[in-house]
Design a protein around this nucleic acid. Sequence first.
DNA 1: TAATCCTCCGCGGGACGTAC
DNA 2: GTACGTCCCGCGGAGGATTA
Length: 716
Amino acid sequence: MPNILTPVLMVTSRVTRISDSLIYSRKVLAIQPGKNRPILEVALHGGGGARTISRYALEALGRLDMDYSILKAIATRSRAEQLIRAEAVAKAVKDGKPKLRFPRERPDQIWPVLPKNRQFPIGVGTGMHHLRVLNQHILNRFQDLAEPLVARATTLTLPHRPTDPERVSKAEMDRRKAEREAGSDIPLRGKGTAFPEPASITAAVKAAGFTKLRLVCLWYRDETRLRMLTTLAKTYNLDNKGLDPRDGQEIDLYGGTITAVFHFMGDFLTHGSPSGRTKALKPADAALDASGGVLVGAWCETHIPTADDAPGLKPAELEDIDAKPQTKTILAGRDIASQYVLGKNAQGVIQPKAPDHPTEMALLDLYRSLGIIDDRIANALRPEPRHALYGPDRIAHVGFHIRQQNKRKGERTSPKIVVTATALVPPAKRGDVWQLRGWSSAVPRWQPYRSAQNQFHANQYPQEAGGKKSYRHRWDDIGAVIERALEDLVEELDGRPYVVTVDEDSARRIWDGLQNSKQSSHPGTGKNKYWLPGYSLQEDERPDAIIRVNIADDRVPPPVAYTRVLSTRDGEKEGETTNALYEIETDFGTPVWLLCNVPRNYDGGNSGRLGAKYTRWDAKRAVISENREDRRKSEMPEPWYTMTATEIFPIALNDRVSHEALAFATAQLCHQTMYWSGRARYPVALHAAIQMDEDHPQYRRTAQSADEEPDIDEQE
DNA sequence: TAATCCTCCGCGGGACGTAC
DNA sequence: GTACGTCCCGCGGAGGATTA
């Protein structure tokens, strides 16, 4: 936490699952003999099913005032398990695949930590109640040796989102209730939708300088074509029955300004080598033609390649024949935004549920890739009256995303650094549409988000120039690139002020001024070349403020509960969850804000808020019953959630700035995303920048583990 | 003295779960 | 399809210790 003088003790808890084998674990928890001694975490060494105690751990344990029972226990267990393994392997020479079973007794002194996150009879997460009990325990133990951070709720009222249920006045609600009693079936509160009004899509398309939007739907499985068609019909209020366009026939979705074309594209979309794909796209050329001011978006079918697609290939090689990155690159090269939807998975052809969430979310994300901004951003940013003077709704909100992609196993190239950015630019005239501009380190110039993303996707991740650099040198160079980007942006903005949002975790290695420990010092005192984004620019070109956002679970304190002071009479009420914005009292400088989030999984309709009232030790067993109402899943395998928080820390670079106004605006832009039904962890501009990176064809995370794993028998 | 080994640490990221 | 939460591994830089 910034601007706090005393050390901050952050307490949290986690569920660690215990493995039945030690020789495949990286870590063990060890119970020390004697009373009141902490549990030790001991790292193990070696690989390939032969892990044992590391030399360093040996020394550390030796130096501790303790007997050698832990070391002996680890060594004994490692030997015993390796023996079991050797026998299984020897047997496998005769019978084929080795089958490994380790004893499943309750561990004694040594508790091996489950090395991988895989299906397990116990789910993750501790639940809210557990955190509250822990909080009380800490308060009791520390008494007045430590004091909790003081956080006060702010007056921020969160924007009403299109996805929220309809807001209904009391009079209208009464009228509807009366009508329902009279037999009508109107809903008391209409359900919200994440889909924008067709009219506002058209407005955004026109504002971007196009005459119409054409969605080109490329498919190779009838079922997928039908799902796309159904979703379009639903969101544009068309009659689904008569809707059965021929291949290549352009159908009207909304007043001639939004249309769709379907094309069967078997050769283009199925897995295989990259050669011949551009040719295979030919039949759709007319539909993809953007001349005459048409904004084109491609909506494609895909599936994850398996051994069926290319018999004989190893899992790692399947990545090379995946059509998705190949086709995405081709479409991006033609300045066409693309979005994919899975036609089948391991279970076979996907049978959509109602509503068909995957297809709907895919279509929404295509709007995002096209850079369409409707009025939801302007609605969300409406400031409190006292902030109107500074006016966060009249400034540009810029987000910079920085990521290093490390080398994966078997890769030879050096780590790559990716920087993407977006700028949410206010209209020159109030009431006009906001614009989204994009920038990337691969194509370092500001353009409409759509073009910036397409060009970024058409290019390989930039390789590091100038030979091998030191850590410091590399990040200073990235800082310089970003300063130039901001300089360019200032010209585009033509005098409108702007703020820059970055994630603390990934950005503090470039900018000293973001670090907690530097909050009381001055520019030029750190090791880094740059103090804050834009700080090296001329004074009148600098951003108004840098907004530091942090979501790291080990750096942002977890909220446990809140107290509401009742206004009507003296008294307080304890609340369990909150999604409000809180201001943290600091010892010097400005305050810092915490935006509390309730995970949707915890709050969602089916979860039943596991862990709200008791801890995992009281988890309920499964109930098997003929009676449907009595049936219940076991609670233990489910995930148990707790509240999370987003830290928002505005650092002003001039004295016009209202810190609180910027904290409010940031919270509002987390609450209202471009095209998502809930909250996002990052505000719109930063989120859109991260999305650009994650949709890149080279952003893949299908790394193969070389580590040998025991075959765990399916049982229970 | 330079090269190599070893471990810590920061942080990227994979896997799995739920929600809409 | 995307989003987030949880919890673990493991890469690669930094820097000390060891070896050629």
